[in-house]
Design a protein around this nucleic acid. Structure first.
Lengths: 191, 191
DNA sequence: GCACCATACGTACAAGCGTACACATCCAAT
DNA sequence: ATTGGATGTGTACGCTTGTACGTATGGTGC
C-alpha cells in the first residue's frame, strides 16, 4: 500500500495529556477492579480500562502488577484502619466505646460490600505474598491498639477476633445478622 | 529426514492406563494445588502435573475448570464439616461440648495450614461464584446445626462467628493465639 | 476370543496475559 | 525562545492459558 519509506499516516491518537495524580487514580481503579473481579481478574488492561487510560500508562507508573496490588491494598487497609481509629478515639468512656464497636461492625464494615470483598481478597493474597502479609499485620496491630484505648490487651485481642468473625460470617451469609443481633453478640462478650 | 509417506516413528507414549478413581485423585490434586498456589494459580496443567496425568485427562473428566473447583471445594467443606459433626456428637454434656469446640479451633482448624488456606480461598471464590456460595451456605448451616445440639440457636450463631474470627485471626497473625488463649476467649463468651 | 466403547493421551489453536520499548508531547528551567 | 527530561501513548513479542479433538488402547460383555 504505502511506500516503505513514506512517513507514517497520522494515526489518531488520544487527545488526553497532562493528567497529574493519574497514579493515584490508577490505584483507586485497581481497588475497584479487585472488588469487582477479584485479584485473579485484575490485569493491567482491566485497570487501565477502569481508569480510562491506555495500557502503556500502567507500565510507566508501576514496575509490575504486584506493585499495583501492594499499593492498592495498602491504601485499602489504611482507609479502613482510619475509620476504626476515628470511631474509637471519639468514644469518651467504655460504654461509648462499645457503641462505637457496634457501629463499626454493623454500619462501616458490613455497610460496604466493596470494602468487605477487598478485605477478604487481601487475606488470601497475604497468604502468599510477604509484602501483603506485612500490610495485614500492621492493620491488625493498629486495630488492636485502637481497641486498647478502652479495653485491656487480652480483651482487645479477643474482641478483634470476634469482630472479624461477625463481619466475615455476615458477609458470607445470605441471611446476614441484623444490627440488633450484632449488638447482642458484642454485649454478651463484653458483659 | 523421514519420507513424507513413512509410517509415524513410534513416539514414546506413557505406559499408564486403566486408572480407576483417577477422577477422585484429580479432585484431591486440585485441593493440593489450591492450597499451595491459590485459586489464581490453579490451572488444568498444574493439577495434571500434581496428579501426574496428561493434560488431556483433565478435559476428559471435567467439562471445565470451574467444575473442578466446585467439586474440590465441595469435598473440602464436607471434610471439615464432618470433623465438626463428629466432635460435637461425641460430647455428652455442655462442658464436653465446650471442650470439643476448643479442640476444634485449636487443633483441627488451626492445626492444618492446608485446610486453613483452603477455607479462605473458598470464601473469596464464593464471593463471585453462586455455586460455591451454595457450598459455603450448606457448610455454615451444618456447623450451626451441630452447635445447636448443645446450645440455643442464638448462642450457636454467635459462637460460630467467634470460631470463625478466632481461626481467621490466628491464621493471619505471625503471632497466633495459643490453645490457652483460645480456651480463655471461648470460656469468656460462654461463661 | 472378539469387538466395542469408555477411558487415556498428545497436540493444536485462539485468546489474553505481563512486559518492553520506540515515539510523541509538553511543562519547566534556563 | 529553546530545550531537556518527565510524562503519555501505541504496539509488538513471547508466554501461558482453557479448551477441542483425533487417535490409541485395553477391560468387559458377549
Amino acid at each position: 500500500m504505502s511506500s516503505p519509506t513514506a512517513p507514517r499516516p497520522p494515526v489518531p491518537r488520544r487527545p488526553r495529556r497532562h493528567d497529574p495524580g493519574r497514579r493515584d487514580r490508577l490505584i483507586d481503579a485497581a481497588l475497584t477492579v479487585i472488588a469487582e473481579r477479584g485479584v485473579a481478574g485484575t490485569t493491567h488492561r482491566e485497570i487501565a480500562r477502569a481508569a480510562d487510560v491506555p495500557l502503556g500508562s500502567m507500565t510507566y507508573h508501576f514496575a509490575s502488577l504486584e506493585e499495583v496490588l501492594a499499593e492498592a491494598f495498602t491504601r485499602h487497609a489504611e482507609s479502613v484502619a482510619r475509620v476504626f481509629d476515628e470511631r474509637l478515639s471519639a468514644a469518651q468512656d467504655r460504654d461509648a466505646a462499645v457503641e462505637a464497636v457496634i457501629t463499626l461492625v454493623a454500619d462501616d464494615l458490613l455497610g460496604s460490600r466493596h470494602d468487605l470483598v477487598l478485605s477478604v481478597e487481601l487475606y488470601v493474597a497475604a497468604a502468599r505474598n510477604p509484602a501483603l502479609r506485612a500490610v495485614t499485620q500492621a492493620w491488625m496491630a493498629r486495630s488492636r491498639q485502637a481497641l486498647e484505648r478502652h479495653f485491656d490487651a487480652t480483651t482487645a485481642r479477643e474482641l478483634d477476633a470476634l469482630i472479624e468473625g461477625l463481619v466475615l460470617h455476615s458477609a458470607l451469609s445470605t441471611d446476614p445478622m441484623t444490627s440488633e443481633q450484632i449488638r447482642h453478640a458484642i454485649h454478651r462478650f463484653l458483659r
